[in-house]
Amino acid sequence: MNAPVIEAHALQKTFGVTRALAGVDLAIHRGESVAIMGASGSGKTTLLHVLAGIITPDSGSVTFRPSEGAAIDVAALGESARSRLRRERFGFVFQQGLLIPELTAVENVALASMINGVSRKDAIPHAAAWLAALGLAGMEDRRIGELSGGQAQRTAIARAQATGAELVFADEPTGALDSQTSSEVMDALLWSTTGQGRSLVVVTHDAEVAARCTRTIAVRDGRIIAAAVNA
C-alpha cells in the first residue's frame, strides 16, 4: 500500500486533568474513508481536531503527505501556517454545516475558493458545478434557511471540495438528519471524496454511517481500542 496521506504517531493531549489522547497511532491512506467511533468524551473529536491541525498535541507527530510537494509536519506548524494548511489542503463538514446564512448556496461554496485568492468570476461557476454534481442544480441562489437539512449538508460538502481538498474531515455530518437523508448525505460525501481518489475521516455515533467507510476505528479513554476493515 502507498504511503499514508496523513499519519499520526504517539499523540498525547490533555485538557486540565482529562487525558483526551493517550498515545494514538493512526494512518489514513489516499482514497480510503475511516470512521472514528466512541462514546462522548472518548477522545474521537480531539483526534480529528489534532489530525486536521485545529489544535496541536502536547506530544507526538502528525505528518501530512500531499500529492505534490514535501511532507508536512502538521503538529510543528505555527497557528498561521496551520490555518493556511486547513484552508488550502483540507476540507471540513460539521454537524450543523456552519454555513453563512446571509449568503446563497453558491456564494457559500465559492467563498472557500475566494479566500484562497480565486476571483469571484471564476469561483462562482466552479461552485455551481459542484452544487450541480451533488444534486443541487437550480438551488444556487437559495439562502441556507431556504434549504432542507440534507440540502444544506450537501452544500457544505460542495464547499469542502471547492478548493480541491485531498483530505476531508467530517464531524457527525449526519447527526442532525433522519435515516433517509443521512444515507443521501453519505452518498454525496463518499462520492465527492473517495469516489474522486481523495480521503475522508468521519467522526460518528452512527454504526450505519461507519459501516459505509473503508475502516472503523473505535476510541475509548483517548486510545484506539479496536480497528476493523469493513466488508
Rank of each mutant, 00 (worst) to 15 (best):
M1N: 06
E7F: 07
E7P: 02
Q12M: 14
R19Y: 06
V24H: 01
L26T: 00
G31W: 12
G31P: 04
V34K: 00
V34L: 13
M37D: 09
S40C: 06
L48V: 13
I55E: 14
P57V: 01
P57W: 02
S59H: 06
G60T: 04
S61W: 00
P66K: 04
P66W: 06
E68S: 14
A70M: 11
A71Q: 09
I72N: 01
I72T: 12
L77E: 05
E79F: 09
R84K: 13
R86H: 06
F90A: 02
F90Y: 12
G97K: 09
L98D: 11
L99G: 07
E102F: 05
E107V: 12
N108I: 13
R120P: 02
K121E: 14
H126A: 15
A133D: 15
R142C: 07
R142P: 02
G149H: 13
G150I: 07
A152F: 02
R154E: 11
T155A: 14
R159A: 04
T163I: 15
A165C: 04
V168E: 04
P173E: 04
A176C: 02
V185W: 02
G195P: 03
G197T: 02
L200Q: 01
V202Y: 00
E208G: 00
R212G: 09
T214V: 09
T214L: 10
R215Q: 12
G222Y: 03
I225A: 08
V229S: 13
N230M: 09
